[in-house]
């Protein structure tokens, strides 16, 4: 009986952790999306210094979370996101509004797909 209770408890813990993971990843992705929006607003207002600072902060934030993301996500996805981040940063450094908008959208899509892979819905299950 003890083993079975432990099994149920373990299943509950695993389920709890996976659901908790969804919330954590949602929080990260929401935060990064917000940062990207902020950068794009600065870029549209030609405030490139602020845009660069915000972009660097966003990149640092992403880097800080990499310890957690490497544990729960496929490394290829994380590497892809990091690559797009760098490309986004390059556009911000180049003060290219079009590039910032384009790479910003690509980065948002990539982050959204990462979040999607962690959530439970019909599409991800099948």
């Amino acid at each position: 009986m003890k083993k079975e209770i432990a099994a149920i408890a373990l299943l509950a813990v695993i389920l709890g952790c996976t659901i908790g993971n969804i919330f954590i990843v949602r929080h990260y992705t929401k935060h990064i999306n917000h940062m990207i929006d902020e950068i794009q607003v600065h870029a549209e207002n030609k405030k490139w210094d602020e845009a660069i600072k915000a972009a660097e902060n966003a990149e640092q934030y992403w880097h800080k979370k990499s310890h957690y993301t490497h544990i729960v996500m496929r490394h290829s996805e994380i590497n892809q996101t990091t690559l797009i981040f760098c490309q986004f940063l390059a556009e911000v450094y180049r003060n290219d509004l079009g590039g910032v908008k384009g790479m910003g959208k690509a980065l948002k899509e990539q982050i959204h797909s990462m979040y999607d892979m962690e959530t439970i819905n019909i599409g991800t299950i099948f």
Partner: peptide, 19 residues
């Protein structure tokens, strides 16, 4: 490139289900 948890979580889940 696949997280270790992607291997451990199914193993533990299967074990619990089997028990």
């Amino acid at each position: 490139g696949i997280p270790l948890l992607n291997g451990l979580v199914p193993v533990i889940t299967l074990l619990c289900c089997e028990l």
